[in-house]
């Protein structure tokens, strides 16, 4: 515990220091271009081959986002019916081997064989910030929003903790904390169950022209952030260079998080530990595609109605003659 506190304190210092050093450096330039590049979404590129699994990003994320974490009131109000699960992470804030309301980024471990050699890979995992995020689009309360720079985030003042976003997320990303949020002021026994939490891609840092904390603090420069077209191009160049593979470009119809790995993702997917709060690396079809196609069909519906009415009118006027 002590070592963690001192580590955190150290990191806090290092982030501030990094911030001051950053002025006038490439980070500052990148940050500046981020604010002016409004139209094109911002995408992060993660070069898995560089990640050493030091978890600096995990602690940096906790450090800068601590003020957004839930402080639930206990005891929790009784919820009905009894099947409604209490999800309480407030006493397990130290858990960093999965996504929780208090841990929006974690390191996944995989081993793989490359050229006959066994290698260990570590992969930072968090919200993918989908192009057309089901979590945002399907929330019935409008508690989530997607910003024009491509990030999606949950408004903890509006979220009721129904966890629909978690169920529709292909990666099991948003995580629930019971006992916080607006449901407490409504009908806590009958509706709602807390607030959902996930990576918001440090929206408040981006607004100030700073890069997300996990990107800034990484000693190996695993992550790069920039305009979509630029990053996609970079990702492909990198993949070519290392004879590697890409994940996230087409998953769920496209995301704003691109991983590049020297090992096929199918192989990584078999190796990583998966489960609740531990996202897979499998292929994901575009979850919103059916809705998008039906939306097009919806344009035809009025025409069909007019045609049917006209057909009926035409037939009956013919009959009259």
């Amino acid at each position: 515990m002590t070592s963690k506190i001192s580590r955190r304190a150290f990191l806090k210092g290092s982030i501030t220091a990094a911030g001051s050093v950053a002025a006038g450096t490439s980070i500052a330039r990148a940050a500046k271009s981020l604010t002016s590049e409004k139209k094109e979404p911002l995408v992060t590129l993660l070069d898995i081959s560089k990640c050493i699994g030091c978890e600096e990003c995990v602690y940096a994320c906790q450090e800068v986002n601590e003020n957004k974490y839930p402080e639930p009131e206990k005891p929790f109000p009784k919820m009905y019916p009894s099947r409604v699960p209490i999800q309480d992470w407030s006493d397990k804030r130290d858990v960093i081997d999965r996504l929780t309301p208090y841990n929006w980024l974690f390191i996944q471990h995989a081993s793989a064989t490359v050229n006959g050699e066994e290698i260990e890979l570590t992969i930072p995992r968090r919200c993918m910030h989908c192009d057309n995020p089901p979590c945002v689009k399907l929330c019935p309360w409008g508690a989530l929003k997607q910003e024009e720079n491509g990030l999606s985030r949950i408004d903890s003042d509006i979220c009721l903790g129904g966890s629909k976003c978690n169920k529709v997320c292909p990666w099991d990303v948003p995580q629930r904390q019971t006992g916080v949020g607006i449901y407490l002021d409504l009908l806590p026994a009958l509706a709602g169950n807390g607030v959902m939490y996930k990576c918001d891609r440090c929206y408040n840092r981006l607004e100030k022209g700073e890069v997300p904390a996990c990107i800034e603090v990484c000693p190996e420069d695993v992550q790069t952030i920039g305009p979509k077209s630029e990053i996609i191009e970079k990702a492909h160049a990198l993949a070519r260079e290392m004879n590697g593979y890409i994940y996230g470009e087409h998953e769920n119809g496209g995301t704003n998080t691109i991983y590049v790995s020297p090992v096929p993702f199918e192989q990584l997917n078999l190796s990583i530990e998966q489960g609740k709060g531990k996202p897979h690396l499998a292929k994901v079809k575009n979850m919103m595609a059916d809705g998008t196609n039906l939306a097009k069909a919806m344009l035809i519906a009025p025409l069909a109605g007019v045609a049917a009415a006209f057909g009926k009118f035409y037939l009956s006027s013919k009959e009259d003659k």
Partner: peptide, 16 residues
């Protein structure tokens, strides 16, 4: 889709 088609159908039926 069905509802919109139906509503428009009834509306135009009235008009015609």
């Amino acid at each position: 889709i069905v509802l919109i088609a139906l509503v428009i159908y009834i509306l135009f039926d009235f008009i015609f």
